[in-house]
Design a protein around this nucleic acid. Sequence first.
RNA 1: CGGGGAGUAGCGCAGUCCGGCAGCGCACCUGCUUUGGGAGCAGGAGGUCGCGGGUUCAAAUCCCGCCUCCCCGACCA
Length: 473
Amino acid sequence: MAKSVLTSQASDFPRWYQDIVAKAELADNGPVRGTMVIRPYGYAIWEMMQAEIDVRIKAAGVSNAYFPLLIPESYLRREAEHVEGFSPELAVVTYGGGKQLEEPVVVRPTSETIINSYFAKWIQSYRDLPLLINQWANVVRWELRPRLFLRTTEFLWQEGHTAHASATEARDFALTILSDVYQDVMENVLAIPVLRGRKTDNERFAGATTTWTCEAMMRDSKALQMGTSHELGQNFARAFDITYLDESGTQSFVWQTSWGVSTRLMGALVMVHGDDNGLRLPPRLAPVQVVVILARADDGAAEAAVTLAAELRSSGLRVDLDTRTDTSFGRRVVDWELKGVPLRVEVGPRDLAEGVVVLARRDTGTKTSVPLPGVVAEVTTALDAVHGALFDEAAELQRSRTVKVDSLEDAEKAAASGFAVIPMSVVGADGETTLNRAGISVRCIQSADGGLPGAGDDETSDSSLVAVVGRAY
RNA sequence: CGGGGAGUAGCGCAGUCCGGCAGCGCACCUGCUUUGGGAGCAGGAGGUCGCGGGUUCAAAUCCCGCCUCCCCGACCA
């Protein structure tokens, strides 16, 4: 019988997470504290995410570009709230070319300042709007308590930056990204159900007027912020003098947005779907969707496995063929399970004699015998089923661990094992601080039906708003 | 920065109290037998015991100083 490879989730969730990241070969710690080496298998998953996100960003009309890693320190200071928010985590370069720099440069913690300084150059007329730019980049935010993927000093992400002619258009665009790019990818690619909502002023991005967020529940019932989309108002437009002539010939400041998702999504993937046997990858994201594993090489089984793998590949699936019969079958199965490959097709002489192979699902562990001619069809169907099952399981966890409460005391109790939904009127002016002191935060503000608050709705104008609160990463 | 721990093989640890050949598990290499849920046996390689000093015939172990890392509290995608 298989003994356990990993620390169990129940005994020590953080340890289990570290075990998975190491044993599924996703990442290693870098030599500098807080830095991360993303290993080939982990990077392959990230590349799948990138591709899915990128295609949606482009579908929203956005173009990719690239801005420098190093930013003049003075740029950061131009927007008061922005510099205040980021100062504590800046890495500053003071030496270059062997001598002290006249003006220190910072390693970008985010690129609002440098990108907007160019927006100011590029935008002259209403004909230049909207300007929709995205970049894929690394950023550095010095972290006190790093955790691979979840909170690292350097991480990879995309950051979108846009300029619009009106506040309404900017808001609509920020929400389009939140829903049509982020929520869509998270739910339909990562198979992770998310809550959408607005951040409190306390949790708002430094320099934004409004921050929208996608939040998800991890298997230990803690929340993870998966992605954010900000309305920047005219804060940066004023700081960087981004103006244009409108149709009537008057100079106006642009209205802006920025939005990003990062390699933190990798951490979410692990913590939402992983189980005690390892990773469980949603099929649309899995670098290997099906592994054809040769149990024994006798009686033509090896040839049958090669043929089957080729057949699956030619139907457009990402397939790996495991014929390492110098390693025991059990060992190889455990390895593929650790790596989260959604489906396994086990090929061996005993089954072949009866014209079948075994199809094993990673998510449920169920095995079925499938006649050889039907394998491709069965695999295709099963992959969709795995995606649905993973999503449903995560949604059910979130549903069963979310409770409605009417007092801060009950919210605190509920947050010990999940999310609490509490009226904003009960949270009031001081409630957030009270909760924070208990290690709980307001993850997002929603309308009473779980939807997004409308334009201009705040706690005073709309008394039906609710807060989703919980412990968070 | 406040509170608590730990530095010994690639990883995880024992040994330290009471000084006496530097060990165990996993991983790695070679060979043989295995191979349908982490195989077995035999052989092998791998060490600045965090760093510096001191005590001693002898220091991973005792003494002094320093460094680093991890965990828990205030910030963050």
